[in-house]
C-alpha cells in the first residue's frame, strides 16, 4: 500500500494509539480495515481505508496483521512531512516493511516492524438511525472537550433544535458551552450543523472524547451521532479514502 502523503497514515496512527496500543489490521483487495476496543471495553474504534484511496495498492490474499500502534508511531515519527510511504508484507513473513521516500527522491528510509500474534474479537456494529447528527469543526470539538475536562470527568451532551449544549460539573463547580446551529453557512467547514429527529441528553466520560480528538488532524470536521441509550459515534473522515469512527458507551443511571 503506497500513499503519496505518508502524513495521512501518521495521523491515523496518532489518532488511534492512545485508545488502543495494538490492533489487528485486516488487509484485503478492498483495502485496510481495523476494529479494536480500548482496554476497559468502554470505547471501540473502526477504521476503513479503501484501496482506491492509495496511490497504489495490491493485496494478493487476505491478511490479518497484528501491529503495535505504539511501535508504528515511533517509526512514523522519523518520517519527513512530505515523504511518501509504502507499507508491504511479504507472503510468509512475520514482519511489516515501512518504506519512506523523500519528496525529491534523495532519501530512502526502510524499517521492519515485527508483527504480533493478536486474538482479534470482532464486534458487529449495527447500522443505527441516530436521533441526532451534529457536524462541527473538529478543532472546536477538541477545544470543548478540553474546556469541559477542567470542570469534571463527565460531559452531558444535550441537543435541542436551537443547538447543542455540553456541560460538566465537579468539585470546582460546573460549566457549560452552548453552540448555536450556524445559519448563514459561508464556509461549510466552520459550520455547526445539527440534524435532529428528536432531542437527546447523554452523559459520556470526557477523557475518551479527548482521546478521540487525537484524530482531529485527519479532518477539519467531526461528525457526532447520538441516540438515547446508544453509544456515541464520533467520526473523522479520511479524505477520498475512508474514515475513523469512534464509539463510546454512555454513562447510565444506576
Amino acid at each position: 500500500a503506497r500513499l503519496l502523503h505518508g502524513s495521512i497514515f501518521a495521523k491515523v496512527i496518532e489518532g488511534l494509539r492512545e485508545l488502543v496500543n495494538e490492533a489487528t489490521w485486516e488487509c484485503s483487495g478492498n483495502g485496510i480495515t481495523l476494529q479494536a476496543m480500548d482496554s476497559s471495553h468502554v470505547a471501540l474504534v473502526s477504521l476503513v481505508m479503501r484501496s482506491e484511496g492509495f496511490e497504489s495498492y495490491r493485496c494478493d490474499r487476505n491478511m490479518s496483521l497484528g501491529i503495535s500502534l505504539v511501535s508504528m508511531s515511533k517509526v512514523l515519527k522519523t518520517m519527513g512531512k512530505d515523504d511518501s510511504l509504502t507499507i508491504r508484507v511479504n507472503d510468509d513473513s512475520d514482519s511489516i516493511i515501512i518504506a519512506m521516500e523523500s519528496q525529491n527522491q534523495d532519501k530512502f528510509a526502510d524499517y521492519e516492524l515485527r508483527l504480533m500474534d493478536l486474538d482479534s474479537e470482532h464486534l458487529g456494529i449495527p447500522d443505527t438511525d441516530y436521533s441526532c447528527a451534529i457536524k462541527m469543526p473538529s478543532s472546536e470539538f477538541s477545544r470543548i472537550c478540553r474546556d469541559m475536562s477542567i470542570m469534571g470527568d463527565s460531559v452531558l451532551i444535550c441537543t435541542t433544535k436551537e443547538g447543542v449544549k455540553f456541560s460538566a460539573k465537579g468539585d470546582l463547580g460546573q460549566g457549560s458551552i452552548r453552540l448555536v446551529q450556524t445559519t448563514n453557512i459561508e464556509k461549510e467547514e466552520e459550520a455547526v450543523i445539527i440534524e435532529m429527529k428528536e432531542a437527546v441528553a447523554l452523559t459520556f466520560a470526557v477523557r475518551y472524547l479527548s482521546m478521540f480528538c487525537k484524530a482531529a488532524p485527519l479532518s477539519p470536521q467531526v461528525g457526532l451521532s447520538l441516540s438515547e441509550d446508544t453509544p456515541l459515534m464520533c467520526e473523522f473522515k479520511i479524505a477520498e479514502m475512508g474514515h475513523v469512527r469512534f464509539y463510546l458507551a454512555p454513562k447510565i443511571e444506576d
Binding site: 476496543m37 471495553h41 468502554v42 470505547a43 471501540l44 474479537e121 470482532h122 464486534l123 458487529g124 456494529i125 449495527p126 463527565s154 452523559t203 466520560a205 446508544t230 453509544p231 464509539y247 463510546l248 458507551a249 454512555p250 454513562k251 447510565i252 443511571e253 444506576d254
Partner: peptide, 14 residues
Amino acid sequence: KKTQAAISSFFTKK
C-alpha cells in the same frame, strides 16, 4: 449517580 456502560453490551459479538 451514573455508571459507565461497556461498549460490548451494545454491539453483538460475532
